[in-house]
Simulated scan of single mutants.
Amino acid sequence: MEYKDIPTKADVEQIAALRKPGCVSIYLPTGTTPAEADRARIELKNHLASAARALEELKVDKARIRAVHLEGERILDDRDFWRYQSRSLAVFLDGDLAETFRLPNRLGTSCEVADRFYVKPLLRALTFPQSALILALAGNSVRLLHITPDLPPERVDVPGMPRDVAAAVGLSSVSGRSPDGRVQGSEGQKVRMLEYVHAIDRALRPVLANSTEPLILASSEPLTGIFRGAAEHPRLVAETIAGNPEDKTDAELAAAARGVLDRLYASKVAALRQTYESRIAAGTALVDLSDIARAATFGAIESLVIDIERRVPGTVDEETGAISFGPDDAQGDYGVVDEIARRVLTSNAPVYALRGEDVPGGGAAAAAVRYPV
């Protein structure tokens, strides 16, 4: 059993690519209190029982059903696992694979059994992970914090991180002038701060190399401008938590960072809508689900936006992309939008999971296409 928190793009792509009879996908809301965890365990137990019945109805091999049941029981019995939860839990079982993700997004409860995993709800966490790193940068101190939605911020140990400006440049102080006349006053302090920033940047790079989370800077001038001018981090957020971070506790910095994330995601949604609306008008984006399914089948989609809350029962033809809509209660039905998203993911195109009111065109999905199909 492998327990994970926020999934990476590679995690989602791996799960989306799996195809075999008897894939069980379970989503349920959880919480951080013991009472919430107990309710979630009971709900998971009920979902596992429902999944076992569905697997039997689909005539899945009995040995695979037993393996799914065993892995589910292991999750239920792991008390340490249930002590640490986020807002939602995703569980994927097929008798061979068994993975869980503790998600920062509040998701509804569902249990899906089909010949592939149900990945659409997982994409919300990938679109808006609600976690970030904070670099609290001051002349006399520097610290890196990791924040998630429900847990207190954690300090990240960064090997080689300088303690302060003076330590970074090997001096006891960076104020005044040295006896030989070399600059150590206000003009020299900026030079020393630049060396300090370079030392921080060198220490951070190995830590941030594999991170997919936003990096939020908390600092004041002139360090803000020096860091932004000298350090290149692709996930560095444009907005800064202003003021001396030494005057703020870790919890206060985390609260400020969550506000930064909210504004960052809101601006991304607005920009995405504007781009799509322009492309829809130009005929290079699709809103009809049948057209989108066909484009996904032939690898023509450049990017996809889906409604995280809307379910469209049915299947998509493997070769033509034609949709066969189905009833809500069809056993083994994986859903049209989820299958479209799965095909887009396997072609390495980005998929954005938004709330219904934010989807361009007002439908279940919208897709920017590379070429007409």
Rank of each mutant, 00 (worst) to 15 (best):
P360S: 13
L289K: 04
R41K: 15
T346V: 05
H233P: 07
D201Q: 11
R294D: 01
K20C: 12
T32P: 02
L151P: 00
F81T: 11
R155E: 13
D250M: 10
G108Y: 10
I216R: 07
E99D: 05
L215P: 06
L304I: 03
D164Q: 14
R83W: 01
E2Q: 05
S131D: 12
P153A: 02
L286Q: 07
Y265D: 09
T315L: 02
T346F: 00
K120T: 11
P104E: 11
E154V: 01
R273T: 12
L89I: 11
V113T: 06
P162K: 11
P222D: 04
R263T: 03
D328F: 08
K9P: 03
N348Y: 15
V158S: 06
T315P: 02
E187C: 00
K45H: 14
S172Y: 06
S50L: 10
P327I: 09
T346C: 01
V165T: 14
L18S: 01
R263D: 12
R87V: 10
R116N: 06
Q189C: 00
E246L: 15
V142A: 06
Q85A: 04
A255I: 12
L18D: 09
I75P: 08
P34G: 03
T297V: 10
G363S: 13
D180F: 00
L217F: 09
G108F: 03
L28I: 14
K4N: 15
T33I: 07
G326P: 05
